[in-house]
Amino acid sequence: MQGEALEALGRWIAGALGASEIRLTEPAKMPGGAIQENWTFDALVTDGPHAGTLGLVLRTDAPSGVSASRTKVEEYALLKAAFAAGVTVPEPLAADPAGDLLGKPFYLMRRAAGTANPRTLARDPALDPHRAALTEAIGRELARIHSIVPPRPDLAFLDADAGPPARRRVAEFLAQLDALPRPYPVLEWATRWLDRNAPETAAAALGHGDFRCGNLMVDATEGPVVTAVLDWEFASWSDPLEDIGWLCARCWRFGADDRPVGGIGERADFQRGYEAESGRRLDWAAVPYWEVLGTVRWAIIALQQGERHLSGREFSMELALTARKAAEMEYDLLTQIRAIEEAA
């Protein structure tokens, strides 16, 4: 983005931020994201509430043809709701829902410091002295997300009906398995178990939908502290335990298997933060069901990623290898469900 396009963007941002004048550095595309495009740049803002230098990220759809699960307008609404609930997210600043400026909708947020690197979070020994505090902070973040409860007119695009979240997921899994070209009897088996053991809980709170260490930005220079909870595109009204099961499933520990909360820390630390923030007791005994559900979900996503590669629309060594990880999740499912049944 250069020249006139950049100037037009600058004028648009100046209008949105109530600035009399604005100067932008050239936007640089941030790495990753087959579905999203994130552009980072600085703005020198004259006048208005944001006067000064402002680090910005502009987020829009990538031209890949892979459709995002939420529109940029919906993502912006989720980010605003989360920001208002005190969740540590990049402050949402403005949106162009009509897509007039770039030919596609986008929104603008403040750039958060830190990095989202799951391997560092799970494996860096330098983090070890800080793991208890970090895990407790993560518990607080998730509790703040779960403080957002229906009904919410600003989040009307989220499916409010649909019955118990576990049953909704089971129905989704069966449809997704039907859409895959090969049979996956282990995933059928695990989904059957999920169906027969589904808790009849309500969709009582906003679920982030992808709350794991790869979507937590952490600034290690001071603290370390959580600087942003990212990627809100999978949010839905759900059972709050679904996020906790996803975070704690063994497949998201990045090799740090002895740290059950996302490879980052201990359950007790997470629980302390979550309970202090929510004022509600966390029932760990109900979490293994949701860990199984999360493991099935990730296995199916992995297989879908392989199909994206095989479709020819999105050649990717990484997507191809990800599909072959599904067997790892399947093995865990056979082990986990047996352990749950034997303990019962």
């Binding site: 398995l177 049979p183 059928e188 059957r192 047996r338």
Partner: peptide, 19 residues
């Protein structure tokens, strides 16, 4: 056989003895 087994599992044929 995998195809048969997947269908049988979904139809509930192993419900009483998943383990």
């Amino acid at each position: 056989l995998l195809s048969d087994l997947a269908r049988e599992i979904r139809d509930g044929e192993y419900d009483d003895d998943l383990l």
